[in-house]
Design a protein around this nucleic acid. Structure first.
Length: 832
RNA sequence: GCCGGGGUGGCGGAAACGGUAGACGCAAGGGACUUAAAAUCCCUCGGGCCUCUGGCCUGUGUGGGUUCGACUCCCACCCCCGGCACCA
């Protein structure tokens, strides 16, 4: 057969088996699993229009595991859907005038066809799409439930604003000061926004990371950093007047270094700290302060992820009293203190904090050392930040830092001016988006009743279609009178709908629950059904969502738990973050012109080859360099499988496979059988225990090589052994190259569909080697190899080794001090 | 700066526990078949050396250490990738 003939044959069997699986409904999962089950999930795609290789890799990994688990006898839930709300649809509408719904539906059709061509084992009866009202109505429902519990609230805040996307971004969506989607510089603006109170779960989200051993360490670390737990003390400094008398007002500061409080030489508040509003209009300090704040505001873009700018500040004229030593300190305001963190106010200890030191140095403010490092350490930037022993700290002198923190906190608590506090860097999740293609937020504003939730019975609040989209002038929905104008659910008076839509990350925060019960019209899902399937046994997706989706979905699961809808704490048991697909060392992108089209690969090599390559070329979690020659290698492997077995298949179909003990008397037969059973053992172990998919492919290649050698001098007596090898290969190939696996299975006389067969089990009888080659070392250096029975005794092994010329040459004239013998594994002779 | 993950042939990558380093694949070189090419099949393939069907030395980022034995464990360092970064 020529290359083209193979390509056509593969193409034909791929179509054939895809339609067979379809008619067999081979991948439909039961509503409720009755036995051992496995929920295998891959991150659902945004319907951009076409699949890229990253998708193919992601889904090939998931599919291999799903098929493997199914054959291992588990009931497998393996669904797919569409994250179909989002900006690209709206941008396409603005650019080309295509309605977002039409654009989205066409893309779903196109990408769905691409997925089907890959032969992935999805239960398509469970397909969901976020832009369909029967899905997003439950976003609205969850929002209302959270609103009832105070977990969704409205607040006027400074937010991240992307001028190019014309919308607000969550903190998680700002990367290095730029928009995660379009890379524009992100600005700051003050807006009324809806927030979800993810901070209510900060402590639990953080603490549970320690127990989530099924997640990659790097993801856990990223989340831990993102949540940013820090334990410290909140201390109340009384604000005093010119005569150092208490004014009755206070300034609360947060510190993790209470032990350094005797070294505080001034305080600093954030430029937007409310205490500054208290400075009277006429005061001399007011004018200077206003000028300073105007300057800071003028170039206000988000600083997140950017190089810190030069520290700047001014004395506000306010004075406070340090409750620990009674000292009067000046209150400054400066650009390096953030309102979003802690209390927005700090005590400055220049001797023991680099930032404070830098600021004090610039403005000539005093520096006082109160902690002496146990051993003199190199000081960084003039400040000694390490713990040490306290000096110049009144009653606390001589204590070490840790003991001082405890003692000072206890004393401060006793006197009522300090208390222990845990702070998080994590902020509440702002979900308002000033765009059209998303879930309408189910709120109505009434003159008399304020923000009123839409009654549950009125859900869904349907997103109107066919509306003008310009990309300018705020929320598009605000222009749609028929949508905006409504009546207040409380009083029936005139009301206006909220015109912002939800962040699309809301959609993907709970979709995997919906898969369990996708057509439920009365509830987001039946808790009994979700309880039977979830937690997810394996979730496969990119690392890019480590602090976005993967933290939001954990939060949602906890909210749902507290609503009584689920009974677990964490939704995902095992997480696999697959690496990127690269070409020429960088990610594939249109602008770099290094894109490899999945359709093109499937047309030229077939789905089996394309999938096989993505699994074989690198371990799942590492980046994968696309290499066309490597793809050809995989194609050649499948060709060789075909060439070796298909022409012999009709002959082998009627031959019974060998009995347990058959073949023991013939070296060639025994050798092949051992290889077959060892391969079963290796492939099974690698997938199940280590989630390695590249090494099983290598093992299958080795089995083929061995089988090919076996066929070189074939006789009729060989046929049962060849049949066993062929059938085993057919089944073991199922996770990696499912179509050819099916064809091979059927051709060799296998009954039914391969994917419905039980995964083969290795016979212990054939895992045993009769003869093993054990290395013989002299002083740890390899000198010979002995072919012996694995049960050979140490003395016998030693005497056999001594017969070897090379070994005896190295033993010459030296006394054997001892021998190390691992039965059947190794002999090491130690000489003096 | 802090935190994570890595560094193995020309390349992608193998080596649960410390026990034959380089499986499998790609590339390369040689050969068979062919009028020729493609395809296929066979052989070689970390480096150096020698008395070359064999043997010796060396080799997993660098330098030390533990051990009969180290890619694997320990200490110090270098480099690469990723995350966080004025978080008090």
């Amino acid at each position: 057969m020529t290359r083209d003939e193979y390509r056509e044959a593969f193409d034909a069997i791929e179509r054939k088996w895809q339609s067979r699986w379809d008619t067999d409904r081979a991948f439909e999962a039961p509503r409720i699993p009755t036995g051992d089950h496995f929920y295998c999930l891959e991150m659902l795609p945004y319907p951009s229009g076409r699949l890229h290789m990253g998708h193919v890799r992601n889904y090939s990994i998931g599919d291999a595991v799903a098929r493997f688990q199914k054959m291992r006898g588990r009931e497998v839930l393996h669904p797919m859907g569409w994250d179909s709300f989002g900006l690209p649809a709206e941008n396409a509408a603005i650019k080309h005038g295509t309605p977002p719904a039409k654009w989205t539906n066409e893309n779903i059709a196109a990408m769905g066809a691409q997925l089907k061509r890959l032969g992935l084992s999805y239960d398509w009866t469970r397909e969901i799409a976020a832009h369909r009202p029967d899905y997003y109505r439950w976003n609205q429902w969850f929002f209302l439930k959270m609103f009832e519990r105070g977990l969704a609230y409205r607040s006027r805040r400074w937010v991240n604003w992307c001028g190019s996307c014309q919308t607000v971004l969550a903190n998680e969506q700002v990367e290095n000061g730029r928009c995660w989607r379009c890379a524009s510089v992100v600005g700051r603006t003050e807006l009324d926004q809806w927030f979800l109170k993810i901070t209510a779960y900060a402590s639990e989200l953080d603490a549970e990371l320690d127990t989530m051993t099924g997640w990659p360490e790097r993801v856990r670390v990223m989340q831990r950093n993102w949540i940013g737990k820090s334990e410290g003390a909140q201390v109340r400094f009384a604000i005093v007047d010119d005569a150092s008398r208490a004014t009755g007002a206070d300034l609360e500061i947060f510190t993790t270094r209470l032990d350094t409080i005797f070294g505080a030489t001034f305080c600093v508040v954030a430029p937007r700290h409310p205490v500054l509003a208290g400075i009277p209009a006429g005061a001399e300090a007011r004018a200077r302060l206003d000028a300073f704040l105007r300057r800071i505001d003028a170039r206000d873009v988000t600083r997140s992820g950017m190089e810190p700018e030069e520290k700047e500040g001014i004395d506000t004229g306010l004075r406070v009293r340090n409750p620990y030593n009674g000292e009067i300190l000046a209150v400054w305001t400066a650009n390096f203190v953030l309102m979003e963190y802690g209390t927005g106010a700090i005590m400055a200890v220049p001797a023991h904090d680099e930032r404070d030191f830098e600021f004090a140095h610039k403005y000539g403010l005093p520096v006082r050392t109160v902690v002496e490092a146990a051993r003199p350490l190199p000081t960084t930037g003039g400040a000694t930040i390490e713990d040490g022993v306290l000096v110049a700290s009144g009653p606390y002198d001589g204590l070490d830092s840790a003991a001082a923190r405890t003692a000072m906190l206890r004393d401060g608590e006793g006197k009522g001016f300090a208390r222990p506090i845990v702070r998080y860097r994590l902020l509440d999740w702002g979900i308002s988006r000033q765009r059209y293609w998303g879930t309408p937020i189910p709120i109505i504003y009434c003159e008399r009743h304020g923000a009123v939730p839409v009654p549950e019975s009125d859900l869904p609040v349907v997103l109107p279609e066919d509306i003008p989209l310009t990309g300018q002038g705020g929320s598009p929905l605000a222009q749609v009178k028929s949508f905006v104008e409504t009546t207040c659910p409380v009083c029936g008076g005139p009301g206006r709908r909220e015109t912002d839509t939800m962040d699309t990350f809301v959609d993907s925060s709970w979709y995997f629950f919906r898969y369990c019960d996708p057509r439920n019209a009365r509830a987001p899902f039946d808790p009994g059904v979700v309880g039977a399937w979830v937690p997810i046994d394996l979730y496969v997706g990119g690392i890019t969502h480590a602090t976005l989706h993967l933290i939001y979905c954990r939060f949602f699961a906890k909210v749902l738990r507290d609503l009584g809808l689920v009974s677990f704490d964490e939704p995902v048991k095992n997480l696999l973050c697959q690496g990127m697909v690269l070409k020429g060392g960088t990610a594939m992108s249109k602008s770099k012109g290094n894109v490899v089209e999945p359709d093109d690969m499937v047309s030229r090599y077939g789905a089996d080859t394309t999938r096989l390559f993505t699994l074989f070329a690198a371990p799942p979690e590492k980046d994968l360099e696309w290499n066309e020659k490597g793809v050809e290698g995989c194609f050649r492997f499948l060709e060789r499988v075909w060439r070796l077995l298909i022409p012999r298949a009709s002959d082998l179909a009627r031959v019974p496979p060998p009995g347990e003990e058959d073949g023991a008397g013939d070296a060639r037969h025994a050798r092949l059988r051992r290889r077959v059973h060892q391969t079963i053992d290796r492939v099974t172990g690698d997938i199940e225990r280590r989630l390695h998919l590249n090494t099983p492919v290598a093992a299958l290649m080795e089995l083929l090589n061995e089988t090919q050698d076996f066929c070189r001098d074939a006789s009729d007596a060989d046929r049962p052994y060849l049949k066993e090898a062929g059938l085993t290969l057919a089944l073991l190939l199922q996770p990696f190259a499912p179509h050819i696996s099916e064809e091979l299975w059927t051709s060799l006389g296998g009954q039914g569909s391969a994917v419905r067969q039980a995964w083969p089990t290795a016979s212990p009888r054939w895992l045993q080697e009769e003869q093993v080659e054990i290395p013989v070392q002299v002083n740890g250096r390899l000198r010979a190899r002995l072919l012996v029975a694995p049960s050979i005794s140490e003395t016998e092994a030693l005497s056999r080794a001594q017969e070897d010329a090379r070994v005896s040459a190295h033993l010459q004239g030296r006394a054997i001090r001892k021998t190390i013998y691992l039965p059947g594994k190794l002999l090491n002779i130690v000489v003096g």
